[in-house]
């Protein structure tokens, strides 16, 4: 008989970032916390991974390819709305500022501790009380 905890999906994060270092840091730290991660280096590739795996949180670096294009932004927004995924954006962009709360936009250069805390908070809000 499946346990109750089996119904709770494993926390998951999609990291979309061209920087190998940034991906490695986030992947290492999140996996240590039991979070499943996927990685993409380009915004479009990130959309495809998001559609396939429906991560709970998407961390999108705006330097990753065409992240600021309207079409790409709309696709991330649609994925976020349809599957209740939280989008966290790294970098400055007026178009993302219009669709996201301020605490989910981080200007570069940023510190990892607050980013990881934000991700943890978002994941725990999904996990419920």
């Amino acid at each position: 008989m499946p346990s109750c905890s089996a119904a709770i999906p494993r926390p998951s994060v999609l990291i979309v970032d061209r920087s190998e270092d940034s991906r490695e840091v986030l992947r290492t730290v999140l996996e240590k916390r039991g979070v499943r991660t996927w990685e993409a280096t380009e915004a479009q590739q990130g959309v495809e991974l998001a559609r396939r795996h429906h991560p709970q949180v998407i961390v999108l670096d705006l330097d990753a390819g065409d992240a600021e294009q309207d079409e790409i932004r709309n696709q991330y927004q649609a994925e976020s709305n349809e599957h209740a995924a939280y989008l966290v954006v790294i970098g400055r962009s007026q178009s993302y500022e219009q669709i996201l709360p301020k605490d989910r936009i981080l200007a570069k250069p940023y510190h990892y501790a607050p980013l990881v805390r934000t991700i943890e908070t978002l994941l725990s809000s999904l996990a419920g009380p």
Partner: peptide, 9 residues
């Protein structure tokens, strides 16, 4: 950013 990441780890 890379140095910050490494330092954080």
């Amino acid at each position: 950013q890379g140095i910050r990441g490494g330092s954080y780890l």
